[in-house]
Amino acid sequence: MTEAVDANKKFQKELNSGTAALVLLSILDAAGKPMYGYQIAKLIETKRPDLPMMKQGAFYPVLRSLETSGLLESYVEPSVAGPPRRYYRITREGRETLAKWVEIWDLTKVFVDDFLKG
């Protein structure tokens, strides 16, 4: 039983590692304004409260790595109370990459669905 649960978790984790970057890029592209981590997590939670795909803490390293690869840029702004916030926004390279990723995602979806439907 636990082995099956572990396998499910592992499968979900592997899927997430690619889709999280795609989802975050598209959220920041659609937002049209810089957002900080909590805002993004909140948006995802409000939109799909029924689907806790991954822990909110796992979004942050993805944001960091998207920034390192130049798809996002960020700046820090002090907040009224509490620690400063890191705002992220999508770069031009990020937008171009997102367009390509969406194509890849669409193809993958069709490919997988084809087999699932038999």
Binding site: S17, K55, P61, V62, T68
Partner: peptide, 26 residues
């Protein structure tokens, strides 16, 4: 509970760091 326990969050950063070099210099 929503953010992830310290061990879970640490694992996410470690995983990202291990894939980082490939992402940075494609």
């Amino acid at each position: 509970d929503r953010y992830g326990a310290p061990a879970e969050v640490a694992a996410a950063y470690k995983e990202m760091e291990s894939r980082f070099p490939r992402l940075r210099r494609p």
